[in-house]
């Protein structure tokens, strides 16, 4: 546990609860020259991997007909905020199969209601 304490301040304090299949909007800091601006990347969360400070999540979106995936370290300082857009109803922990689907099959059903 002392290992965790060593990089304690690197952990993000507030991370919204989101899981596989959810649609999220990730606000990413982009540095252009000496200017800094915030860019949004919205898509399905198709994987969450790793634990602790190493945890990452993969967001997939379709941009101009081309599938784009971005892997974000969950605790990365370039992520300004993560916004939960929609909850998805899925049965798998990794949605890699969605890459090979076309049309209607690429859609993820929205969760009817919260089960807590």
């Amino acid at each position: 546990m002392i290992l965790m304490n060593a990089v304690e301040e690197q952990y993000k304090k507030e991370i919204p609860v989101f899981s596989i299949g959810d649609t999220v909007r990730v606000h990413v800091k982009v540095i252009e020259g000496d200017k800094e601006r915030v860019q949004a990347f919205e898509g399905y969360v198709i994987a969450r991997k790793g634990g602790g400070i190493r945890e990452t999540f993969t967001v997939r979106k379709i941009s101009y007909g081309v599938g784009v995936e971005r892997i974000f370290p969950l605790h990365s300082p370039i992520i300004q905020s993560i916004q939960l857009v929609k909850r998805g109803d899925v049965r798998k922990a990794k949605l890699y199969y969605i890459r090979y689907k076309k049309g209607k099959d690429t859609k993820i059903k929205e969760k009817a209601r919260e089960q807590r």
Binding site: M4, P73, S76, I78
Partner: peptide, 11 residues
């Protein structure tokens, strides 16, 4: 103690 990782400012 072990290995881990740290983020720099630019990520």
């Amino acid at each position: 103690i072990g290995m881990t990782q740290v983020f720099l400012e630019q990520g």
